[in-house]
Design a protein around this nucleic acid. Structure first.
Lengths: 297, 297
DNA sequence: CCATTTGATACCTTAAAAGTATTGATCATG
DNA sequence: CATGATCAATACTTTTAAGGTATCAAATGG
C-alpha cells in the first residue's frame, strides 16, 4: 500500500466512475480496475460497492477517503517543506547576542529578518561575548551580535555599528555635569568594570583608555553583567564605563557623561563562513543591509 | 515520490550507513544507493552529506526526517482505521429513540455498547416513533428503540421490554387514590392523548382499551410529546394514559393510578435487516443480550 | 429485445526496480 | 608510506510489476 494507491482510490472515490477516474490518473480503465481490486485485497477491506453500472463507497470507504485526504495533504506538505528548509525559507536559526545589544541593533535585525523570513523560527539567546565566541565555534549558535575582536579565521563578520563608551555615575557625584571627563579625572575613582573573561574586547578598550595616559584604573568590582554594573553604580559603590546604548534608559539618580576621546567598539554580526544552516545566508544579507544603511547616513 | 521512498530515506536517516539501511529494506546496497540519489533528485534537495566513509543528515534532511515520521505514522493509522471501521470496531452509529425510552432501556443499552465499542461514536437522536420509522427506512438512522408495531418487512427487531400504560391525574382529582380504574370510570373524563400521527402504536393501544368496553374516549387535546401531555394534566386540563416508565418521576401535585387490565406495549430495538454500517451488528447483539437478561428474571 | 455503456478478466508489452560485478575513495594498520 | 579492508557510486544484466489492448459479462435505456 502506498500513496500512489491512495491517489488511485481518491480518484474513484471522487468520481464514482472507473473510466473517468482512470482518465484522471492518465491510465486506461482495465489496469485501473485491477489496481482498485489490488488495493481492496491489500487492505482486506471492501471500499466500493459496484456493478457494471453503479459505484458507491462503503462506510469503510467513506472513512478511508477522509483519512487519505489528510495523509496525502501532509505528504505534499512534507515534500514542500523540505524544499523550503533547503532554500532557507523555513527552519530555525539560533541567534545569540550581548544583552545590551538588545538596546541597539538587535531589534531592527530581528524585525527585518522576521519580515523577510516569517517561517524561520529565530531562537534568541542572550549571551556574554565570550560565550558567543565559544558557541559559534562549537556550532551551538548559527549567528550572533558581539563586539568585533580582531582575527576570526572561520567566521564571517558584518560591521553593524560602532559604539562609544560613556561614563556613568550617581547624579550627586562630583563629576556629574562635567562637560568632558578624561582618564586623569578618573585616576582616584573606584571603577566598576566587566571582567576580561566575560567580554575581552570591552575590557581591553577600557584598559587601553586608561593606559594611553599612563594611568592604572582602580577597579574595585568586576561583575559579569552590565545590568549589575549599573546597579552597583546606583548604590554609590563606584563609577563605570559602559556602552552608549545602555545610557538612554538609566534610572532616576543616575547620570552619564561624555569621555574625552571616548573609546569605540565595533558591534558586529558573526556567523561561520561555512554554515550548514541554509537560513543563515539571508540573515547575513540583512546584516549587510543594515551596515550599508548606517554607512550612508 | 512515495511513502516507499520515505521508508528508504528513513532507513538511511536512522542508520547513517548504506549497507545496514539496505539490509533493513531487504535489498542490496547498489539499488539502495540509486534510490537515495533518485529521492534527492525528485525533491531537488540534498538530504545527506556523504563520502565513502561517512554519512550525515543535512539540516533539510533532519527536518524531512521529522515530517516523514509523522506522515508514515498517519499513513499506517489510515490503513489500520479503515480495517477497524470495516469490522465495526470504529466509526459512527446513529441511534434514535423515543424520548421516554431514556427512562428505561436506553441508558443500559448505551452503556453496554459504549463499553463494548469505545471507538464507535454513538449519535443519540430523540425522535417520535413515526419519525423513527421514516428515518430507519430512509437510512438516516442506523438503529432505534421504539414501540413494536407489527409487520416490519425490512427491519430486524429485538424485544427489549414490555411496558404497561398508567393513568395520570392531579393529586386533587376525584379518581386519585382509587385502587384500580377501568374504562367506564374514564367515560366522562377529558382525555389528553398522543396523536396517531406521532405514535400510532401507543394511540392504538389507548383507543383499543376504551373500545373494548364500547366506550369512546373524550380526547380534548393531542399534543405530540409525552412531556407536554404531563404538563397539561398538571394544569388540570384533563387526565392521560402514559407509559409506566414516565410515572416514576412525576412532579408534585401529580399522581398515577393502575388501570384495570392495563394495555401493554412492546418496546423494541430495530435496525435494517441489511445494514451498510458494520457497527450495527454488535449493537443488535447487545440488544439481544438485554432481551435474554430480562427473560431470565 | 437490442444497442450502448461500464467494470472485470485474459494475454501481451514495456518500464522500472533490483541484483551482480566492479570502481574509486577513505581510513586503519603495519 | 604502502597495503588491505570497508563503503558508496556506477555499469551492465535480469527480474518483476505496471500498463495497454482485446474481449467478456452485466446493467440499463429506448
Amino acid at each position: 500500500m502506498d500513496t500512489r494507491h491512495m491517489h488511485i482510490f481518491m480518484a474513484l472515490a471522487e468520481t464514482l466512475h472507473f473510466g473517468r477516474a482512470a482518465e484522471r490518473m492518465s491510465m486506461s480503465q482495465p489496469p485501473f480496475s485491477r489496481q482498485i481490486a489490488m488495493i481492496e485485497r491489500m487492505l482486506g477491506v471492501k471500499l466500493f460497492e459496484r456493478n457494471s453500472r453503479n459505484v458507491a463507497l462503503t462506510p469503510a470507504g467513506e472513512h478511508f477517503m477522509k483519512d487519505c485526504r489528510t495523509v496525502l495533504a501532509q505528504f505534499e506538505d512534507a515534500c514542500r517543506d523540505v524544499r523550503l528548509v533547503a532554500s532557507g525559507m523555513k527552519g530555525e536559526l539560533r541567534f545569540g547576542f550581548m544583552m545590551h545589544a538588545a538596546h541597539s541593533v538587535v531589534p531592527q535585525l530581528v524585525q527585518l529578518y522576521s519580515e523577510a523570513r516569517p517561517d524561520v523560527r529565530l531562537v534568541l539567546d542572550e549571551r556574554t561575548p565570550t560565550e558567543i565566541d565559544e558557541m559559534l565555534v562549537g556550532g551551538t549558535l548559527d549567528a550572533a551580535v558581539t563586539f568585533g575582536c580582531g582575527y576570526t579565521p572561520h567566521l564571517q563578520t558584518v560591521l553593524l555599528t560602532r559604539e562609544r563608551l560613556r561614563i556613568i555615575m550617581r547624579a550627586d557625584h562630583p563629576l556629574a555635569g562635567a562637560a568632558q571627563i578624561g582618564p586623569a579625572a578618573l585616576r582616584a575613582e573606584k571603577i566598576i568594570a566587566t571582567p576580561v573573561a566575560t567580554a575581552p574586547a570591552l575590557r581591553s578598550a577600557i584598559n587601553s583608555y586608561f593606559s594611553a595616559k599612563g594611568i592604572v584604573p582602580n577597579v574595585v568590582f568586576e561583575p559579569r553583567l552590565q545590568h549589575t554594573i549599573i546597579q552597583l553604580v546606583a548604590k554609590g559603590l563606584g563609577i563605570a564605563l559602559i556602552p552608549e546604548s545602555l545610557c538612554a534608559g538609566l534610572g532616576a539618580g543616575l547620570t552619564s557623561g561624555t569621555l574625552t576621546d571616548p573609546p569605540q567598539l565595533d558591534v558586529v554580526l558573526c556567523a561561520p563562513i561555512v554554515s550548514k544552516n541554509p537560513a543563515v545566508s539571508t540573515f547575513m544579507q540583512i546584516g549587510k543591509a543594515i551596515q550599508h544603511a548606517s554607512k550612508s547616513i
